[in-house]
């Protein structure tokens, strides 16, 4: 049997909202270590990797070595509309069961339950190498969200140029060119902090459609962390409630290759 209780149900709601437009169906891989999810978008340009450690849950039980729960994202996000912001959520599945039961509770006054039919999803697991990035940028999620949204008005691609001292986001579109520079700002109040760590400068082009899609996970944490290496996928990481110990939602995006 699998049973997990999360007092802050909105965390799961935000995770699903963050990935629902990228992936149609996903597998929840449950083990005694927690929940993992790995899925590609339908064009195989990006990859979502979720890790929820048991620390994020008030209660966590998985009797088998592993269980795979196939979820349709549209249905899950529909179910999570039932979940109020202050609700706790309990997920429960029998060992050979065909459903995942969600229970949303606020105190004992209001209890909602929905049994979701599980799907059999054929998914390929890719090996994500442990990468040390040449450039790491930590910036407020609201800033990331705003840059991606504003730049999408001018073009389809955005160049991220990370150098010592700061990071420049630029777009070159039909109506003209624009850029936004964020300075390395370690000594300001936490919510405005921008930390740019550079071993060697990196400049890469990415599709804004995907960068904007990842921004839907912004409510999950205050800061987002970008990892860049030459000619490798960009890593966009949201730590759950800004605590890596609880887990993270990571997106990887393949770069545009210059012709």
């Amino acid at each position: 049997m699998f049973e997990a209780v999360l007092s802050n149900g909105s965390t799961l709601k935000k995770i699903f909202e963050g990935i629902k437009d990228l992936c149609t169906d996903v597998n929840f891989d449950v083990s005694s270590e927690g929940i993992k999810l790995q899925a590609m978008d339908s064009s195989h340009v990006s990859l979502v990797s979720l890790e929820l450690h048991t620390d994020v849950f008030e209660q966590f039980r998985c009797d088998r070595d592993s269980m795979t729960l196939g979820l349709n994202m549209k249905s899950v996000t529909q179910i999570f509309k039932i979940c109020g912001n202050d609700d706790s959520v309990t997920m429960r599945a029998e060992d050979e069961g065909e459903t995942l039961e969600f229970t949303f509770e606020k105190g004992e006054d209001r209890v909602s339950t929905f049994e979701l039919k599980l799907m059999d999803i054929d998914s390929e697991h890719l090996g994500i190498p442990d990468t040390e990035y040449q450039c790491n940028v930590k910036l407020p999620c609201s800033e990331y969200q705003r840059i991606c949204r504003d730049m999408a008005g001018f073009g389809d691609n955005m160049t991220i140029d990370c150098q010592k001292g700061g990071v420049t986001f630029s777009v070159d579109g039909e109506v003209g060119k624009g850029k936004i520079f964020l300075k390395h700002q370690p000594n300001v109040e936490e919510k405005h902090k921008v930390i740019v760590t550079v071993k060697e400068g990196v400049e890469l082009d990415f599709a804004l459609r995907y960068l904007n899609n990842f921004a839907k996970a912004a409510p999950l944490s205050d800061h987002v962390q970008l990892g860049l290496n030459s000619d490798t996928p960009l890593s966009v990481r949201f730590d759950i409630e800004d605590k890596a110990t609880l887990g993270s939602l990571k997106f990887f995006l393949a770069p545009k290759i210059k012709e």
Binding site: L47, H125, L126, G127, D205, T232, F252, P255, K256, I257
Partner: peptide
């Protein structure tokens, strides 16, 4: 704007 690479060309099967 360059050619979009596939994520599968970077992350192979484990």
């Amino acid at each position: 704007g360059g050619t979009q690479a596939s994520i599968m060309s970077f992350f192979g099967k484990p």
